[in-house]
Design a protein around this nucleic acid. Structure first.
Lengths: 343, 343
DNA sequence: CAGCGTCAGTAACACGAGTTACTGAACGAG
DNA sequence: CTCGTTCAGTAACTCGTGTTACTGACGCTG
């Protein structure tokens, strides 16, 4: 039914209606300090704009001012269950900062990622966030450097780019504190693949807190896992069948905790009455559905997304921020897999 | 360290490097049919562009072509657990269509929503998706009409705007089919608030499928709930304590199913051995963590998001699409709360 | 060889705003 | 009365690309 899609109202229209020049309209609408426009004229212009239903054209503004008001976020949207939370946090923060967030998927092919960034650069984003699905060192695509860039849930080896990561150590400590609070002194750990930040940090924090309480964590109590449920199963089996089974197991992630549950139940032990389990990641779908519910340490995805944007904003507004590497706390989420130690 | 942020490469630069006019560059890069440029020139230009690292300026392009390549999505990002999936679907689809999706939060204050749309309009979005957190008729803000608009998980009373909603009836049917397949003939239903589309559709589908199998659903077997776990508890209690308890209960949503679980367990009945339960919504956190896992009907959020974008694309490219109201199937997600009927 | 058509490409304007450098009027001081 | 200063506002350029209307050269035909 719409025959003539009417031309949108421009500043020129407003100027005409208010009987001033377009420049003046621009000054008034941008509230430019240093230019004095008397209240009456100002009112007249604002009124005219209101009346005509004037709406700024962001594209024109971006072109003229050389600032798009856009941030970019590259992440694995589809495959990663975590991405949604990062997006949520970043999206919200951007909106609050009066900017839009452009999201581009990088289903983890290096080329694809560069292409995604390329498209974002075409949009003249003022800042870029690269978010990974697991805490790791990443190879930052060349073109990412053409704009202020923050890494979320990852970092670059060189340490040149600012990053926001989870404080894995704090998570490890939280796990230890919980177990200690329940009187456990015979504790064990099933690891992630060696060397990755998640493993190194989690274990360091866990170990440190135990040491502080004079609880030993001998090598026999640390068994190697690889992050899969299968490896969690075998790791737990090894611990339980050994000469000196622990009263609590801290698993490097929730999936391994799930495997551990199976090994534990197979042996007729009850969680948390006879043995306690703590996981890591707080994957809703897992932690909630396990029986009993898995007490686990959460990765602060939403906060990381928001912090990434905050950092970008700081960088683009030129405020010198010293803390270029940010590590956010990993809080414990209590469910029902930790009980009092029997021994 | 970056002293002089070098001016980005423009078409003019490419033109100069290739020894042609800017117009020609534009023609080549846009691959304009109807203009003939010999291969050699074309090569020369492309090579120059590549060499200089030319990158289109989206803002300038949008301004000149009057097309932004942007779609807008208004939804409750923060509060609604469903929004993430809609975003995921819409985001992915947009990317595939070579567009960007701008997301704006509407934490459900009518004014806020209009303001959000206003910001999107400033960006000259070519289409708008409004997504609701529950299936309902909504009051579409005035300004939404200034651009092609699709409603997702909601609709407007007048029916003027195209919409994508879940086919609640199909979900109701799926629930009934599952129960019938397990031999149930004494079934009951706990309702959502009367009149809302979710209730009307789900019950209609459920009832229709039962009728087709000559199974009655008398009024005493339909008890009123309001969507809360509390009401599910009371509803189930009423059914179980009645003169003629059912062998299966179809709950209007997962939260009520959760309440029903409690009432059932209180009475010493076992799910699914003595009584079966089917929910609706497939809220991961609930359905998974209930014991036993809740068999429930899923709302296809991701698909709705994608379908919304597809419809927008169709509308903006001017292809007349007849089906202006789309209803997507609600598939059953089997877990462990349905068993064979004893009677 | 005049006339016409195609080829290859260009000049010039548009898009809607931001921004700088300027102008005409009014006012006050000397 | 003149000069300088503020006030209020404008002309004109810029941003980078899309698009239309045009041009000059060349080849072919009758």
């Amino acid at each position: 039914m719409e025959s003539t899609r009417e031309r949108p109202v421009t500043m020129a229209d407003v100027a005409r209606a208010a009987g001033v020049s377009r420049t003046t309209v621009s000054f008034v609408l941008n509230d430019r300090s240093g230019v004095n426009i008397p209240g009456t004229t100002r009112e007249r212009i604002l009124h005219a704009a209101e009346g005509l239903g004037y709406r700024r054209n962001a594209a024109a503004q971006a072109l003229a001012s050389q600032r798009s008001g856009l941030f970019g976020l590259v992440t694995e949207i589809v495959t990663s269950p975590f991405a949604a939370d990062v997006i949520k946090g970043a999206q919200w923060r951007s909106w609050e900062d009066n900017r839009f967030l452009l999201i581009a998927p990088s289903e983890n092919e290096q080329m694809m990622e560069a292409a995604a960034i390329e498209k974002l650069l075409e949009q003249r984003i003022e800042g870029l966030i690269i978010a990974a699905s697991w805490h790791q060192a990443i190879e930052v695509p060349e073109n990412a450097h053409q704009v202020p860039c923050v890494l979320v849930h990852c970092f670059d080896e060189s340490g040149r780019l600012p990053s926001v990561v989870p404080d894995e150590e704090s998570g490890g400590r939280a796990a230890a504190q919980e177990l200690l609070a329940y009187g456990h002194r015979e504790v064990a750990h099933i690891t992630l693949p060696p060397g990755i930040p998640a493993q190194v940090g989690r274990l360091r924090g866990f170990g440190a807190e135990l040491s502080a309480a004079d609880v030993a964590l001998p090598d026999q109590r640390i068994v190697a896992g690889d992050g899969t449920a299968e490896s969690g199963y075998h790791g737990a089996a090894e611990l339980l069948d050994g000469p000196n089974p622990p009263t609590a197991i801290f698993c490097g992630n929730d999936r391994m905790a799930m495997g551990a549950y199976d090994a534990i139940k197979e042996r007729g032990l009850r969680i948390p009455h006879e043995i306690s389990v703590v996981g890591f990641d707080d994957q809703q779908a897992l932690a909630d559905s396990l029986r009993p519910g898995l007490t686990t340490v959460a990765l602060p995805f939403e906060e990381m997304g928001a912090a990434g944007v905050r950092k970008l904003t700081a960088m683009t507004t030129g405020s010198r921020d010293t803390s270029s590497h940010l590590a956010l706390d990993c809080p414990l989420h209590r469910r029902s897999s930790v009980g009092f130690a029997l021994r």
